[in-house]
Design a binder for these strands. Structure first.
Length: 278
DNA sequence: CTCCAGGGATCAG
DNA sequence: CTGATCCATGGA
């Protein structure tokens, strides 16, 4: 499947901190794992080549890469000042992926106080140990039931560290229907976040990432170390500012498009090391 | 060696 | 309520 290259940069999409199940071949060529599929994506001149069947493309990848949405309109609306103009131009090919909600739950529990390469390693280990083989050394993300039946020691062996008990708690609460993470259409974002925060190891930031990347709640504004740095640098005169205040500032500034704004800001901050101490 | 990572739980005040 | 400390692990 070939589509026109517009508001699409595979490197920016996969390396803006929302996705951990890919392998880089080069800047314009990646392997992406989702569900029980492996996709080879390649940028060529003004086209994007999805090496998949038309059926898989329509059923999975089209929505996964959020191709039904007009990003030029979104960018226009959040381009409210000089800072955002620079961030949007820097990451102009970013799109927010629509990923599996349970996978996002576990993924962002793993993300806490961790580095991106290590997050990828833990997810790969969990998938290899508890997922289904797709092809070669690639495995699908584990189901709730599989992870629920794993014991803490096995999860720790995947290098999850102190987060293993959080993963276990998440699986128990989901498997036993102590929390509802599946029929969520009737819940607003605040209610959904409150539900997720009942899980140990899920706080405000992790909950925001889960609803943004796993539930399409694009009004969420996760504030991590990088967003804190870039926001303090540009909007708070480098003064140490509370996370809740930064989140409120973002939500008021970007309204229901906060998640997109946050993602352009995260990407430019991390790529350029904005605000990082020496 | 020390410091820190897409934070949160727990404890001290 | 706010702020400090601890948490596994590995790379800089």
């Amino acid at each position: 499947m070939i589509i026109e290259k517009k508001d699409f940069n595979i490197k920016q999409i996969l390396e803006c901190g929302q996705h951990f199940r890919h392998e880089k071949i080069n800047d314009k060529e990646y392997l992406v794992i989702a569900e029980n599929k492996i996709l080879h994506v390649e940028e060529k001149e003004e086209k994007i080549i999805f090496n998949s069947s038309q059926k898989d493309f329509e059923k999975l990848w089209k929505n996964y890469f959020d191709l039904n949405r007009d990003y030029s309109e979104i960018k226009k609306q959040i381009n409210v000042d000089k800072v955002m103009n620079e961030a949007i131009n820097f990451g102009s090919g970013i799109r927010i992926l629509n990923q599996d909600s349970f996978e996002m739950l576990i993924t962002f529990i793993i993300s806490q106080n961790n580095r991106i390469p290590m997050i990828k390693t833990v997810i790969k280990n969990l998938s290899k140990k508890f997922g289904e083989k797709i092809d070669g050394d690639y495995y699908s993300f584990p189901t709730v039931e599989k992870l629920y039946n794993a014991n803490i020691e096995e999860i720790k062996e995947c290098k999850a560290g102190f987060r293993a008990k959080y993963i276990k708690d998440a699986c128990e609460k989901v498997y036993n229907n102590e929390i509802n993470i599946y029929n969520t259409e009737h819940m607003n974002t605040k209610e959904l976040k409150e539900e997720l925060i009942k899980i140990k190891g899920v706080g405000e930031k992790v909950a925001n990432c889960i609803v943004l990347f796993g539930y399409g709640r694009r009004e969420a504004f996760p504030v991590d170390v990088w967003v804190k740095r870039v926001m303090e640098h540009y909007y708070f005169e480098n003064k140490d500012t509370k996370l809740t205040e930064i989140e409120r500032f973002g939500n008021e500034k970007f309204k229901d498009l906060s998640g997109y704004a946050q993602q352009y800001l995260f990407y430019i901050a991390r790529e350029q090391g904005i605000g990082k101490k020496k």
